[in-house]
Amino acid sequence: MPVRRGHVAPQNTFLDTIIRKFEGQSRKFIIANARVENCAVIYCNDGFCELCGYSRAEVMQRPCTCDFLHGPRTQRRAAAQIAQALLGAEERKVEIAFYRKDGSCFLCLVDVVPVKNEDGAVIMFILNFEVVMEKDMVGSPAHDTNHRGPPTSWLAPGRAKTFRLKLPALLALTARESSVRSGGAGGAGAPGAVVVDVDLTPAAPSSESLALDEVTAMDNHVAGLGPAEERRALVGPGSPPRSAPGQLPSPRAHSLNPDASGSSCSLARTRSRESCASVRRASSADDIEAMRAGVLPPPPRHASTGAMHPLRSGLLNSTSDSDLVRYRTISKIPQITLNFVDLKGDPFLASPTSDREIIAPKIKERTHNVTEKVTQVLSLGADVLPEYKLQAPRIHRWTILHYSPFKAVWDWLILLLVIYTAVFTPYSAAFLLKETEEGPPATECGYACQPLAVVDLIVDIMFIVDILINFRTTYVNANEEVVSHPGRIAVHYFKGWFLIDMVAAIPFDLLI
């Protein structure tokens, strides 16, 4: 008679799926529990143990900040960024110097990925580790590398530091407007667009060049630039800015003055950032001319202004700041037409079709709590990747769950009947059967004279019903998954307890 339990259901295979997918890609990662103190490590794979030199037993239950890997060259700011990422709910990448158990130093890129439950609360953290440099290539500990984003994938490793954006290309926007319009339909740009040429040739750093990471940081200074100062900065030398009595002219307006920039070969870094931020506020060169004239017309309804409409929906549905990093990277690809469009465009503009998908598509409701890094690593669709929660398995109709209350009560009843059979069957065979043979035949009273025979008949009927119930009862397979398919249940029961239950259900007393 089957006594099969499996009270692990309803099970959740999400954690096993993450481990299996990460292991298949030869990654070095740990999984931490966000619900406990210090976000203790609950799993670390073999790749991480080989990377740091510690065994799994030495890593388990330690804080996922990996303070046991810190050393003299470990930056405090990087460690603080990892700790801050564990307090938030967004994906974050941090470069930090770690030390192995043998004392060797290596520069590592740590990717902190939160995993949320159905309520939107962070319950786990996945920390992925990628070695960037070994100890002989690690720089000085005073050099802070965590304020910069990861290198873009479309640049060669040897040319990542030679990417320079020439400031004269930004200063000569109005001069290039006529050349853009003359391109017409034969050019790649839309009317009114501004073409910015980027020099990728390796050259020595000069005062006129600005690194790509500095251009990325310009967006942080746009908020500090007032509207009046932006307007004066875009007017140009024809209309000098008016300053109040006793007030000095704005240095932001002076930063885009061609006369002032041409007199000296070098520009201050602050002026460069502010000038680029001011130019980015204009949607095209037409807006710059309109600002000089004193009238700013409404933005025209053409394809170039609607190019950012799908980007707005993608940004609203993005799951991490990696989408913004990807957008900034692609927006700086050289030799393309940049349409400086305000994100607050007309909502009635139709979304044009684009061959290049900048932001990841909208994630469906079932995966809105899973970050983009987890979705990318697992390579699963929205119909396959579940949320991290207890999910009731989908069972067929008329199927009994093996952990249901009805099955528990039924098993206790069958257990009592088995005990009765084990006690009274030998007793009936030894004593009652002998008395029946010696006594007179009682054929007239039937079952009324033999109450134990009636009980034995009921017990046999219950055993037959138990066999039928076992054909529709779920079970737990070797992978700790609840199986509810009727065919698989029948095959599993035939290979197991079916023969024993059938022999126990045969009414031998009635056959004798």
Rank of each mutant, 00 (worst) to 15 (best):
P10G: 13
T13F: 08
L15I: 15
L15W: 12
D16I: 11
T17Q: 08
I18A: 05
I19H: 01
K21M: 08
Q25M: 07
R27E: 04
F29D: 01
I31Q: 01
I31A: 01
N33M: 06
R35T: 09
V36A: 14
N38V: 01
N38L: 05
C39W: 15
C39Q: 13
A40N: 07
D46H: 04
G47A: 11
F48K: 01
F48T: 01
L51N: 01
C52H: 01
C52G: 01
G53Y: 01
S55C: 09
A57D: 04
V59P: 01
V59N: 01
Q61A: 11
Q61D: 09
D67I: 13
F68C: 01
H70W: 15
R76H: 15
R77I: 15
A78S: 15
Q81F: 10
Q81P: 01
L86T: 10
E90Q: 11
V94K: 01
E95P: 06
I96G: 01
I96E: 01
F98M: 07
C105Q: 15
F106S: 01
F106D: 01
L107P: 15
C108L: 01
V110C: 11
V110M: 03
V112T: 09
V113G: 07
P114D: 01
N117M: 15
E118W: 15
A121T: 09
I123A: 15
I123G: 07
M124Y: 10
M124S: 06
F125N: 12
F125L: 05
F125P: 01
I126E: 01
I126D: 01
L127I: 07
L127Y: 01
N128V: 15
V131L: 12
V132W: 04
E134F: 03
K135W: 05
G139I: 06
N146T: 12
H147F: 04
P150N: 07
P157V: 07
G158V: 15
R159W: 12
R164F: 09
P168E: 13
L170K: 11
A172W: 04
L173H: 15
A175D: 07
E177W: 10
R181D: 09
R181Q: 07
G184D: 14
G186Q: 15
G186P: 08
G187V: 08
G192E: 06
V194N: 03
V195M: 03
D197S: 01
D199Q: 05
D199Y: 01
P202G: 06
S206D: 05
E208S: 06
S209F: 04
L210P: 07
A211M: 15
A211F: 13
D213W: 03
E214Y: 11
V215L: 08
T216K: 07
A217Y: 06
V222C: 09
A223T: 14
A223V: 08
G224R: 14
P227K: 11
P237C: 10
P240Q: 07
S243M: 15
S243G: 13
P245K: 03
P245N: 15
P245F: 04
Q247N: 03
Q247E: 15
Q247H: 06
P251S: 13
A253S: 11
S255A: 07
L256Y: 06
P258W: 05
P258R: 11
D259A: 07
D259N: 10
C265Y: 14
R273W: 13
E274F: 06
S275Q: 09
A277G: 08
R280T: 13
R280S: 15
A282Q: 15
A282T: 05
A285T: 12
A285C: 15
E289P: 08
A290P: 12
G294S: 14
V295G: 12
V295N: 07
V295K: 11
P297K: 03
P297I: 11
P298M: 06
P298T: 09
P299F: 03
P299D: 05
H302S: 05
H302D: 11
G306D: 10
L311V: 12
R312I: 07
S313K: 11
S318W: 15
T319W: 03
S320Q: 11
S320H: 06
S322R: 09
S322Q: 14
L324M: 14
R326G: 12
K332Q: 12
P334G: 08
L338I: 04
N339K: 12
F340I: 12
K344P: 10
P352C: 07
S354H: 08
R356T: 10
R356Y: 08
A360E: 06
K364S: 11
E365R: 07
R366W: 08
N369K: 15
V370F: 15
E372G: 12
E372H: 15
K373G: 04
V374M: 07
T375C: 11
L378D: 01
L380T: 04
V384K: 05
V384R: 07
